[in-house]
């Protein structure tokens, strides 16, 4: 079966900024695919190229086997796009917006009404549909935008940061909707800088950093590739640095401890990478006790996607976020997104 979306060696620059340097991945039909990376990594630019809003400088994009660069109009018919920032006309009601959307996708009038009613009820928008969108909360706006993106039954639904700015409840609802969509056979391509989101939803992931795909596979594969288990140890709720240093030096002498880092941001807790073994926690606790140190909390886990990111880039996603936040030019970015 041909991939739902195929991206090969995509490149796109805006002036001097190489937003996307080398991005390749493919999305299989019926799966949720996550494009994970910090803000400014090139996710949105990639999505804009796929959705025909930007023309790449080089590379190949196919949507349902259609060459989206050579034949953008046919590709648009196959795509549903839910942008990061929901642009609703606040004077229109939700239903009126969907009516407009139906006409833009040339759904014949008689089917449009039925289809709009169905989208309104299946996304739980009944009580909002006839109110102006200007009165909507963030979660409802996003759901209406999703309804608009799904109206023409696209082969591939593309969502750019679908839960940014949503409260936790709305986020859970959104995740639920996306899973239901996948179960019903829709291919979903989403970008996110939330690890949990991609981990919870996606069956395949591409991690993108500075315009390059640095790792791709199923979340489980990626974690296995990083290897080792993670142990987070807190000696006290707020541990003095010397105590943490002392514990770190001691623990490093154990052969199963591959790495030990003090996390200053979390009250000098210790992050350990260990060779998976069943008695790791007990061994550590006993050693601490013998050295006269308490244990406030200790937990073992498989590597997270953040660890995958860390292994590939040498920094955590959070650090990348913070670094990116300082060097971004929101004005220039807004300009890029303006057609």
């Amino acid at each position: 079966m041909a991939p739902a979306v195929l991206i090969e060696k995509l490149q796109k620059r805006y002036g001097k900024v190489e937003a996307v340097k080398d991005v390749s991945f493919q999305v299989e039909p019926g799966e949720i695919f996550g494009l994970l990376g910090p803000n400014g990594a090139g996710k949105t630019t990639t999505i804009r190229c796929i959705c025909t809003l930007a023309t790449p400088d080089a590379g190949k994009i196919e949507v349902s086997s259609i060459n989206a660069i050579a034949n953008p109009k046919a590709a648009r018919q196959k795509l549903g796009y839910v942008a990061q920032e929901v642009a609703l006309d606040k004077v229109l009601t939700g239903r009126e917006l969907l009516q407009l959307q139906a006409a833009l996708y040339h759904i014949p009038g008689k089917f449009a009404k039925e289809r709009i009613d169905k989208m309104i009820s299946s996304l739980g928008l009944q009580e909002y549909a006839d109110q102006k969108t200007g009165t909507y909360s963030g979660g409802i706006r996003k759901r209406l935008d999703l309804a608009a993106g799904l109206l023409h039954k696209p082969d591939v639904l593309v969502l750019d940061e679908p839960t940014v700015g949503l409260d936790i409840e709305s986020r859970v609802v959104m995740w639920d909707i996306l899973r239901q969509l996948r179960d019903a056979g829709t291919t979903v391509l989403l970008t996110s800088h939330y690890l949990e989101e991609v981990d919870a939803l996606a069956s395949s992931v591409a991690i993108i950093d500075k315009g390059v795909v640095i790792a791709a596979g199923t979340p489980s594969e990626l974690k296995d590739r990083v290897g080792g288990d993670r142990i987070t140890l807190r000696i006290r709720e707020f541990c003095p640095l010397e105590e943490a240093e002392k514990a770190k030096d001691m623990l490093k002498s154990f052969p199963f401890v591959q790495e030990a880092i003090i996390n200053v941001a979390q009250g000098n807790s210790l992050n350990l990478v260990v060779t998976p073994q069943s008695d790791a926690l007990i061994t550590i606790q006993q050693a601490l006790q013998a050295a006269g140190l308490p244990t406030f909390g200790i937990a073992q886990s498989r590597p997270s996607l953040d660890d995958v990111y860390l292994a590939a880039t040498g920094r955590t996603l959070m650090d990348a976020e913070l670094a990116a936040a300082g060097s971004r030019d929101p004005k220039a970015e807004r300009k890029q997104n303006m057609k």
Partner: peptide, 13 residues
């Protein structure tokens, strides 16, 4: 253009 509504029109076929 500024509010991104135009993008909604431009991604439509």
């Amino acid at each position: 253009r500024e509010f991104g509504f135009l993008n909604r029109l431009l991604v439509a076929p």
